[in-house]
Design a protein around this nucleic acid. Structure first.
Lengths: 358, 358
DNA sequence: ATGAAAGCGCTAACAC
DNA sequence: GTGTTAGCGCTTTCAT
């Protein structure tokens, strides 16, 4: 039980040393677990530590070290469940190994991403977990490379020639979605996404398309993507429907797209799954309580986080060898938003017909 | 433009000093913006800095300072939009002032909360923004107090005798919800919440009850809360409905409760707003795209964050005086999940009747 | 087995 | 104005 917690100056290693009647160096050794210290002295040190409520100052301790026990994490945003969980996991994993995690949000900006990275470099972080805004070929990864930083790239990446990468197996998951949709008889499917996240989105798209066409060569797959942000995507989608296109199912390659799709369905008073089916990449808690529940691809957050940290620490400890590119399997959650085409009312070119509600 | 970015040893202040032909102390002064340096020398320093690509090591720099330029942030979780946005805001605000934000999730555990705080104390953070799991009277705040840490308490707090507090004006927002619900003719309303977050939840409950009864003394207000976590709440709610209770509206005092309410409505095939109305504390992006859109109280995240940081830095800079307790106004977003009672089918004790969907 | 000494990279007094 | 001198709190040779 710690006592003497004076709100003022915290005890330093010297206080412990003098209290234990040994030198600071010995205290340091004892606390580092060096076994060559006389047990009796070690015990005195432990007693002094407890008595004074001494705790190592990680900042001072890191000063003398080559690599500081800090891990940087850069996520595109913190607002979604996916990245929120990711940060939580990474934090726990870092803490387990005695490291402090410093997380920052790039707010979907590559410029900010590099600035943050520079700041983390200033801190001499031991390693970085970067979830790039776009993909592994952006300026952030380049910065890390040219500054000899050690890191792991996650999420919107496929593989890299300098860093280990870990991401969800988008292609496989998308193929499974294709199997389900085509299996249910959907012959005209719209896929929506943001193209900037090139690597991942392309993988998702290709995985889907390949599997769908393999199962039914005559299936029609339309694609709407936006280069920039989510609003252009909304307009494109609106135009697409306005010109009378009537797919029986929509597959959104990202969460924001799922939201956009739902809101456009609302505008037109279309209900899932009778009027149209919907599947989205990325699950969220609300998707199982809405009416209808929304089918979704669940990314294995914990596995990605844990694999990323394992690889990262391996590199921090000096592991050599070519970078690895891990793909973690996803789970596809079929829910009520997916039905068979032609089962519901599905009025021809039907536009809005009634006020919303119920 | 920085050059000579050797991936190896980064230039130190001494490298800059010798390159500029001055002492390290002078470099330090120039970089700190001290004006008593000969302009010519200052320029040589800047040149050297640019030439070498020198950047201050914040860790080393903090060593000599009393307060380190680090702010700690502890949130109950990162997975919800509210806390995700909060961290993003806090991070930006800290960065603006040249501070690094270290964020950690207490994962809704008071024990972990204190551990994190202890670790942050080890780092000698200049200040802490704590969003306590329960309220301002928990062990975390006590720890801060007894260790003389400076901090601000946010979100699940009302006021404290040692720390400034900033939170949403739950009571006022709840009163507004009451006005809307009672105004629409609801005479039997169920309020659900988690009681542990005592301070805030009680404020919300009382704000609601007081206003509702003022408007219509005969309104019936049932309350279901759980001490522990969300699952008991679900059971209680299920029991409540199972025993035939049939309020015309539900007001959830927290996001998880809204989710639970929706999923229980689903179980019974009740639709909003025809079968029952719903309003939730805490808005989320999905609430406006689901069918129906869910009415919600929006907390002013940015204002809370900005006010908290302002107060915190004032204290860090040594401001004295009694702690303040700020309440930031919320916005109530009425949406389709709220209707007038008796407008829809609303079958008496009606249990499930049809398969779900549309 | 232990301690003295020398820093890590930087800043703050205090001379000059 | 500027440099010298001392450290911040800790770790790490390297004598002893």
């Amino acid at each position: 039980m710690a006592q003497h917690k004076s709100p003022q100056r915290r005890p330093s290693i010297h206080d412990v040393a003098s209290h234990a009647g040994v030198s600071a160096a010995t205290v340091s050794k004892v606390l580092a677990g060096v076994t060559t210290v006389k047990p009796e002295n070690a015990q005195r040190v432990f007693d002094a530590v407890e008595h004074l409520g001494y705790r190592v100052d990680p900042l001072a301790s890191d000063m003398r070290r080559a690599k500081r026990r800090i891990i940087g994490a850069i996520m595109p945003e913190f607002e979604s469940e996916f990245f929120g969980q990711m940060v939580t996991e990474l934090e726990g994993l870092a803490e387990q190994r005695g490291y402090t995690l410093v997380a920052a949000s790039s707010r979907e900006s590559e410029a900010r991403e590099t600035e943050i990275l520079a700041r983390m470099h200033d801190w001499r972080v031991a390693g970085v977990v970067l979830a790039p805004v776009r993909n592994e070929h952006g300026p952030a990864a380049a910065f890390m490379k040219s500054n000899g930083m050690t890191g792991v790239l996650i999420d919107r990446v496929l593989s890299d020639d300098a860093f280990d990468t870990v991401s969800a197996d988008s292609a496989a998951a998308s193929a499974e979605v294709a199997r389900m949709l085509v299996g249910k008889g959907h012959g005209h499917i719209l896929v929506i996404g943001l193209a900037e996240q090139a690597a991942t989105v392309r993988a998702r798209l290709e995985g889907f398309r390949t599997q769908a066409l393999a199962l039914n060569p005559s299936v029609r797959i339309d694609v709407i993507t936006s280069e920039v942000s989510v609003e252009p995507l909304r307009s494109s989608l609106r135009d697409y429907f306005a010109r009378g296109e009537r797919p029986t199912a929509v597959y959104s390659l990202l969460l924001k797209g799922t939201l956009v799709a739902l809101s456009e369905f609302r505008r037109r008073d279309w209900h899932c799954p009778n009027d149209i089916s919907l599947v989205g990449f990325d699950d969220a808690e609300w998707m199982q309580v809405t009416w209808p529940a929304i089918a979704a691809v669940v990314q294995p957050v914990r596995q990605i986080a844990s694999e990323a940290m394992t690889l990262l620490f391996r590199r921090i400890e000096g592991a050599e060898g070519p970078p690895t590119a891990r793909l973690e399997p996803c789970q596809v959650l079929m829910r009520e938003s997916v039905g068979s085409p032609g089962n519901g009312p599905h009025p021809g070119g039907g536009d809005r017909q009634q006020p919303p509600l119920s």
